[in-house]
Design a protein around this nucleic acid. Structure first.
Lengths: 195, 195
DNA sequence: TTCGGGCTGGACTTGGGGTCTAAACTAGGG
DNA sequence: CCCTAGTTTAGACCCCAAGTCCAGCCCGAA
């Protein structure tokens, strides 16, 4: 990502760039804007990063680390695979509620994510793979219907959670992770559990 | 959208720009590339459109018209609301399978869609609103669980269908609308039907 | 044949991403 | 205290691609 490790003070101030991207959109945000809002001069930014896109992907990677952590914790919890899937959904929504700007930017820029291999991989590692594994586990422990297809279903869950959360972030500028979590997790639970 | 109505021959050739956008991404595609691949000279493009973004939104609007039509047809079909929801899901996946490039571009550029009001509205009209209405209908006719929230659920369905379809388009470069439709529609059906 | 509108080539402007340089400013090691 | 290596920064600069302009072309209608 970055060649040199990024000094802590810079790391924090860079986070301010997220809201700029979220507000005006990535391409409408000039490097000078980033410099201004973070207080980090342009030349310094270019000293640490290869370009604007890399700054974006650094920021998004940090969000994905949060998601991955939350998902990992949820998976490590108690209960059947289906229970833990429930927990994953809620965990992801909580991260979204906690970092709305970053989420909007991430979702808004899947395109770039698709073209930046590291990010595609990060999404996979943070969500799709763990969920796919959990689905397989659920078929074994009997909590999840044996006919589910891991690949399609993990993508489906990701889409359902993500787009629903995003919808509230965009349309209402607020996301009640508890309430939306009940709705989404409930529907998925009924759709997935063993019959 | 366009000030002047766009002549038919141009309309067809413009469609070729979609694959360019899908391959290289929107911002990496120069106007000259668009001119080259469509055979429409740059000056002519600017004669008809206000800019690159407007060309994109024109193309996406045409896709959304297809989606809206397919959804409308599915809704007009026979059966309970739940049955027709099933049909909507399959219809959307068929459109995605039929126009993979356009879909990838559309999904890739939700950000822009979010910032181009007409597109946000078009997505809402093409999918979210009809589905929300159908959900309400389903609660009335007793085929859909009475506790579903229309707003959250229509977003959820949109996300589930769309992201699953996109996943196959991106990861496998092909989408078997029938098979994926069975999976997605099945899960949603079990998740939504009255208990 | 002339008029008017769609169309086009090609030169031009401009904005912003990215580069370069050279001068500070550190921090550690001797 | 100085030397060196790594940071940080201002400011000038380059360059590409979006978008503008305009003169002229083509063609159908009057």
């Amino acid at each position: 990502m970055t060649l040199r490790p990024l000094p802590a003070p810079l790391r924090e101030r860079l986070e301010l760039a997220v809201s700029a991207f979220a507000e005006k959109g990535f391409e409408r945000t000039r490097m000078e804007d980033v410099a201004e809002v973070t207080g980090i001069p342009k030349a310094t930014l270019y000293y640490h990063f290869q370009g604007k896109e890399q700054i974006l992907s650094w920021l998004l990677a940090s969000l994905l680390r949060d998601v991955a952590d939350a998902v990992t914790r949820a998976i490590a919890g108690p209960g059947t695979a289906l229970d833990r899937l429930d927990a994953i959904v809620r965990a992801q929504l909580e991260v979204m509620a906690a970092r709305p700007h970053a989420c909007r930017v991430l979702l808004a820029d899947i395109s770039r994510a698709g073209r930046i291999p590291e990010l595609a991989v990060a999404i996979g590692d943070a969500f799709l793979l763990p969920v796919a594994r959990l689905l397989a586990e659920g078929r074994t422990d009997g909590s999840i219907d044996s006919s589910v297809d891991e690949e399609a279903t993990s993508a489906l869950i990701y889409g359902a959670v993500t787009v629903t959360g995003l919808h509230y972030l965009v349309a209402h500028e607020s996301l009640d992770a508890g309430r939306v979590g009940d709705l989404v997790a409930g529907l998925l639970n009924r759709g997935l559990r063993a019959r």
